[in-house]
Design a binder for these strands. Structure first.
Lengths: 339, 339
DNA sequence: TCTATTGATTAGAGCGCTCTAATCTTGTAG
DNA sequence: CTACAAGATTAGAGCGCTCTAATCAATAGA
């Protein structure tokens, strides 16, 4: 049996209460006793039992985290940021996955709440808003990559409109006039990216071209083939704002297959700055979301609530940034830069 | 305040003990009472408090999981497999990251153990063996992508030697004779892959060429440049077994940069079958590890111990498989297939 | 010498649950 | 009726800790 506080107390010749004080770094313990207790604890290999502590103190150091899909590098990055911040502050993460199904997410959320966590962080959840509000009645809730109007809920989102605008500004700045967006369809954040694209294009006095696509490489290929079938070579968009990096890679494949060069004939911008984009082989110009930072902010928002420092909801809208790599170049009327 | 068992008992007009029995699906409760309790619980929105339950029953449904690096898709996949199995069996995951530093991993592990978890799963940990053995004295431990001889420790590993052999057999079968391995250096599993490569080459009566590299794309580029500098065009290896997929992508870049075509001039096999490899743009032939399966097996090994069904350590060595895509082709003495 | 006062220590109740053992109901057989 | 077994229910201790209030020791002031 693992030693308990009682064992440490007996060995150190003090009361359990004193051991408790030492374990919580209370200042009102004499140095002599503290040392004795610490030594006894060390000798027995004692470690406080977080669950018992949580129960007795009616506080929790557990943060529930529900992830839409861990295989998605985006979420993995957010969780890493979350974990780093939580560890530094002495919190522990209980982690779940919802399998992208509302029903399963509901169970996962319930399971997290049964820990009576200090708070809960949901990464791009697909559960109905009512479920989120119900959770918010039990403990603070922070949403990442999903919005909410509930007052007990904080949100952390990337400003997809600004991100698309960044991409458009970049391409327009390079002289491109015919620019198309490969829309992410129903994917999280896709609507904002599309809106941002359209708004930015109009701001530049350009006609927005939106092609329905998805956040996968095969969809990117397909969409570009459609584009190629629709436009003559001379009218083909010379700039492409993809829904995400995967989509961009697919688009590049289809372009190259058709004998078009990137970036000489067509410039292309991705979205997300995944590890994929950074690969030298691709060197994709892309829009970066501060993912680790998003995790940190989510944690901080939660902790502010837990500590009662704030009751008003906070809505973080993070500003993305453009990472210029090798898939974008100045527009050339001759359809290619000089070689 | 959230309702407790006492509240439910009062509302249903029964004792707390009876509510406890209902919550645990005990068969020795009359249907009438069961229904009454369930209704009262429903009305109050009652959910048992896992921590209190764990404390009282001296059992735990918590599994501690320490991940070397969540950003690495490999681990994210394993965790997904783990999570699916754990959820199905009613366990919860407490998750940590070690920041790839032994000291930080030590803290992370301690933090997990302070939950008195049913068991602990470590994904490619870098802590010293002694720390693992110490943990194993407190609860069952399963290691993924790391070996151990301790008797309280189960392990789940992919058979890196077999994986490399698969790659070599494939290339040799395509007629390649000069085959080089881009070694992963100190990375987890790199040693096995190298050994497997060497053994397989000898089995085919071929001379193994090993180039020191790392599991990154830039290292892959660098290594191929070295290869190009070392060998004349005619003596250049025509088959490459990369340390992992990233490494393979870097290698491809360097080859193309040098005017060599993949797979016409050089065939290349990756390792891990990451989402990267599946990208149609790359279509990398690669060795697949059953990652989700590894997570599931780790969970099962743990549960067997938790249930006391087994005390002997189990050492899973999973058989990888080859996924043939477009970066490998039959060797042609003319240095290229007919076009 | 006798309070106050301050700081250090501890007794003991209680967190929300489980679990053993005891108690209460029935139904049935004698 | 009574006795008793079997099933249903409950009392109450206890899991490992925290926290309030009480106790104790030591020092200072009068």
């Amino acid at each position: 049996m693992r030693p308990t506080m009682e064992d440490v107390a007996a060995r150190a010749g003090v009361s359990r209460a004193l051991v408790s004080l030492v374990m919580r770094n209370s200042p009102k313990v004499s140095e002599a006793r503290r040392a004795a207790v610490l030594r006894a604890a060390e000798e027995l290999g004692y470690q406080p039992h977080v669950m018992a502590r949580s129960l007795a103190s009616r506080t929790s150091t557990v943060l529930g985290v529900m992830v839409n899909d861990l295989r998605n590098a985006f979420f993995a990055d957010v969780v890493e940021g979350l974990d780093a911040a939580a560890q530094a502050a002495g919190f522990d993460l209980v982690l779940n996955t919802g399998g992208r199904s509302p029903a399963r997410e509901g169970n996962a959320l319930r399971s997290l709440l049964s820990f009576r966590p200090a708070g809960v962080i949901l990464l791009s959840p697909v559960v109905p808003a009512s479920a989120i509000e119900a959770a918010a009645r039990q403990c603070p809730v922070v949403l990442v990559s999903r919005t909410s109007r509930a007052s007990g809920v904080d949100t952390v989102n990337d400003d997809g409109e600004a991100g698309s605008a960044l991409a458009v500004d970049h391409l327009a700045g390079l002289g491109h006039r015919r620019i198309a967006h490969l829309d992410g369809g129903g994917a999280a954040g896709a609507a904002q990216r599309r809106r941002g694209f359209q708004a930015a294009m109009r701001r530049h006095g350009l006609e927005p071209i939106v092609v329905r696509s998805e956040h996968t490489d095969t969809a990117g290929e397909k969409s570009v083939r459609e584009l190629l079938a629709t436009y003559s070579r001379l009218e083909l968009p010379t700039g492409l704002v993809a829904g995400n990096d995967f989509n961009a890679v697919g688009a590049i494949s289809a372009l190259e297959e058709a004998g078009l060069r990137v970036p000489e004939d067509v410039s292309i911008v991705g979205y997300d700055n995944t590890s994929l984009a950074a690969l030298r082989h691709l060197s994709l110009t892309t829009v970066d979301q501060p993912r680790t930072e998003m995790g940190r902010l989510a944690f901080e928002a939660l902790v502010e609530r837990v500590r009662g420092e704030r009751t008003e909801p906070v809505r973080h809208l993070l500003h993305p940034s453009l990472v210029v790599r090798a898939t974008t170049a100045r527009f050339s009327a001759t359809g290619g830069v000089a070689r």
